[in-house]
Simulated assay, not measured.
Amino acid sequence: MAYVERVFVAPEDSAPMEELDSVDAVEGGLSGDRYQTGRGYYSPYDVCEVTLIEAEAVDEIRDEFGIDLTDGRHRRNVVTRGVEVHDLLHTTFRVGDAFLRGTRPRPPCAHVEQVAGEEGVARALKNKRGGICADVVQPGTIRAGDDLEIVEADPRTMGRKIAERLGL
């Protein structure tokens, strides 16, 4: 079962991530988060409304690199468990009462390492460990412990499956 393990926001660029029990997904992102309010490091040029990372990736980073990012220093908003977040790209999914759409991978940058204050964080978050970006499709509340489910599959993937089934 896929679910939300933890939820984080930061009120402004470089501020520590704050863990919350719940947060409202609103137009433009998560209520009070730096990118929703336009105070993110990359605002307004490279904005992710909501970022997701797998708890399993955070666990791997701790085990492989000895870096513990469970405090939110990964700079991602929603920590999931039981789903590969890259499988959410180009899908619409429900998380809590909110509906999100996966838009693109979120690779790490030098800024994440600078804010984390620990060498090797950007390298540890490379590849699929960096998570993804998502847009808010329908506002709602996201809580730690909420289920996550795909409600509309990636249309390209579904199209390929239909074509294969038809022998095209």
Rank of each mutant, 00 (worst) to 15 (best):
V47H: 06
L69E: 04
E54Y: 03
V115W: 08
V95S: 01
G82K: 06
K128Q: 12
D59L: 15
E18D: 13
E49C: 03
A124N: 11
G120Q: 09
T103P: 06
D21H: 15
G140S: 15
D146E: 00
T157P: 06
E56K: 08
K161T: 02
G140A: 05
G72R: 10
G38H: 05
R75G: 09
V58Y: 05
A153K: 14
E19S: 11
P105L: 10
Y45A: 15
G96S: 02
G40P: 03
H111G: 11
G140T: 01
L89F: 04
G145V: 09
V85E: 05
L69R: 07
G29W: 02
F65G: 03
D24L: 10
G66M: 07
Q114C: 13
E64D: 06
P155D: 02
D33S: 09
G140E: 06
A98M: 00
R143G: 08
Y3F: 08
M1H: 13
E152L: 08
G82F: 00
V151W: 08
Y35V: 09
M158Q: 04
D21R: 14
R62I: 06
Q114D: 15
M1T: 15
T37R: 08
P11A: 11
P44D: 02
V47F: 02
R104S: 06
Q36S: 10
T103A: 03
E60Q: 15
D33E: 06
C109D: 00
N77C: 11
V7A: 00
F93D: 02
V78P: 07
A25G: 14
A144S: 04
T141W: 00
E60D: 13
G96T: 01
G32Q: 11
A55Y: 12
T37V: 15
T157Y: 15
R62Q: 07
V23T: 07
A15R: 07
V58S: 09
R101H: 09
A110S: 14
I67V: 09
P107H: 07
E49V: 01
E164W: 00
L166N: 08
D147V: 05
E113N: 03
E54S: 13
T51R: 03
Q138M: 11
T92C: 03
R75K: 14
V112E: 04
K128L: 14
T80I: 05
M1C: 11
A2K: 05
A134F: 04
R129F: 12
